[in-house]
Design a protein around this nucleic acid. Structure first.
Lengths: 220, 220, 220, 220
DNA sequence: CATGAATGAGTATTCATTCAT
DNA sequence: TATGAATGAATACTCATTCAT
């Protein structure tokens, strides 16, 4: 019957989504700034000029709010990698761009690194950490790509998940340790270091000769 | 320290034996089990059969107690690496053994990984995270070693700190991500994966041919 | 009330029918089920398919809504007693029927017992508890009746309000304590127990011999 | 080992019990004054000059504290009845004294009535309401007594639990309804009313003639 | 008229730290 | 010296009520 005579204040879906995004953006900032435990929900509400109850209308617990910020961060990462690699034809270059986009995303959004670390520390017992859910959802095409490159002799033959595993470890290790002690090097040099070592390890002898083609150029 | 000045029979051996080390060992277990925030000092006191006030006689705050457990973990790591590499003559093998000992230490002491993560999450603003203090204290000889290997043409020429940086990132990334989602592979295969990729990246062409010599042998 | 002035077909019979009575009936159920404090207005609105604001259009506060449910319960009690005694000629029988109807009402509507208890607990400071307002409004004719019975020698001579007081206490005591610990006996046996003891106490010696005439018959 | 060398601040059992009693006494006052819900634990702590945490050292939840006050009230009731009936030889008189002591206890401790009502309202779902636990624990000897009186022909023959049930209902009804609307009559006249009606109902014809012997004398 | 989004006062409970014994 | 009783600041979450649409 509601479909016929819509009564009462209509809800504005668009506005709701905007508000949700506003809350997540601000909560991301605060959680990354103070850590999960020390971020009072009141602080978030105040900072947004909202009542605390309003926050709880959108996220029923502080934990849910926090995990939603992590998810948002990973969605952003994925979008960034997709955008960066969309137009790259050459598969090896695609991989290089993906690594670069991955590091670039966290370079531009260090707050997301904090969220990952906080999640790891405070919710260690979660069965499926957010980053892992996203990794599993998005890793498939890269495995396919690597296997094609192996077949074409451009990458050394080995199980694809060893490669993505090491890459993943390296990248996560890098973002964690980088922000562990403050940035020490430029984004560009970080990317090149990773590419230099990892590509040297996985590329076939032929491709290894062209390694410098895949590095970021100095932006003088 | 009592061993020097103690004369006569102490009144209560048993109680004297309960000291810093006992507290730290138990606190390590609990902090890694429940996380920093959720570990009550009371819990630690109870588990040791001590009064809460006694804990505070050894460590003046909970934070100090926690950081002391992290430090204890790093001291243990260093001792482990030193012991593992002490009798190895060949420098490349020493490096391989150090990597192996590093991974092996955290494999045997996953609780120390937790401590590092907890420290990172809860005390992000510390100027000098414990692991970094220890890294800086112990990295020097390895840089020297690498430079000698470069001079001898066994390792590709590049700044030594890039190599140790990548190794460090890889290792930390590995210990973090490994315990992120539960262990996925055996210790041995982890070590070999790391060695395979990293040594392929840093060794000179000659040495790369002998890569398999440095891997752990299957323990069938 | 609409029945007088309504002309033409109302726009939405169904919605008009949802009114005070529907809200009160549902609120009675919920208040008795969860207690005053733990019954959210939202719960009532949801259960009725109404907006929360709509509830507030009928009752300006939660307290007002609650007290209206208690009043409704007492109105129902009164109607029940009136109906049960309307056609009884013999005054002693009328009293027996009134007691029976009283117990019967709460037997059939245990939710009203809850409302009385909740009112007592949550609004103790009200000058005039709902049940008392109704008692005072309806007790007069019973006093008159008792006095006539005393004059006729069928009831022992004593102040009528002592009798109604004890009866009232007994009945309220019974409904409270019955639902205190779950029902323990059948409605019929409860009525007979009360009648046995109370009538034995108030009836004259002559009438006491006929006591069994006033008891409920077994419904085998 | 503690038995030998007792270390640390010794606990003073006596003081602990005193403190517990102080807390219960004050909490009884406040719970009966404001009701369970509206009594802030802070209010109790403040009123006692204690920290809120101290209250929680003695009672781990507000609910536990509250239920302990109810239990304390029932223990007091029992002690009062025991003391009042201890030296009474005549069994019928013992019963009269017990009823009198019961009503007298609640007359002197109206706050306990409030606790019972609050318990009923807020914890309706408890399997064993406090008053019932105590009733069941203490009712046995009274049943025995009544059965002996029946055998001796002093009380009409009927199941003893019907008598104690009606008495219990009447008494609880009286204390509830009395405090429902404020005291209306003196303690003495209440007792006599109850005795008059109930004893008339349960005593044998012989004993009924001596009913006035069991009533409280006017205290001119 | 009807709605439900927004609000924010209100509250039980925890736990690091102190200090009297 | 060792203890553990006492403390009170800190904080997530609820829900009656309002009011813009």
């Amino acid at each position: 019957m509601e479909t016929l005579t819509k009564r009462g204040r209509p809800k504005n879906e668009e506005l709701l989504a905007l508000r949700r995004e506003d809350i997540l953006a601000f909560a991301t900032e605060k959680f990354s700034q103070y850590g999960y435990q020390r971020t009072d929900v009141q602080l978030i509400a105040d900072g947004l000029g909202l009542g605390k109850g309003t926050i709880y209308r959108y996220f029923s617990t502080k934990e849910e709010l926090f995990l939603a910020t992590v998810d948002r961060g990973m969605v952003g990462l994925n979008a960034c990698i997709t955008a960066a690699t969309a137009s790259i034809e050459d598969p090896v270059n695609r991989i290089a761009m993906a690594l670069s986009a991955f590091l670039g995303y966290f370079d531009e959004h260090p707050e997301v690194v904090e969220l990952l670390i906080q999640e790891r520390a405070e919710f260690r017992d979660r069965e499926n950490p957010t980053f892992r859910l996203h990794r599993e959802k998005n890793i498939g095409p890269w495995h396919t790509l690597l296997e094609e490159l192996m077949a074409a002799g451009r990458v050394r033959t080995m199980p694809a998940d060893i490669i993505t595993g090491v890459i993943s470890d390296t990248l996560y290790g890098k973002i964690f340790t980088t922000y562990f002690g403050g940035k020490r090097r430029t984004f560009q040099s970080q990317v090149n270091e990773v590419l230099t070592v990892i590509f040297a390890g996985i590329l076939s002898d032929d491709e290894r000769g062209k390694l410098s083609d895949y590095l970021l150029e100095s932006q003088e």
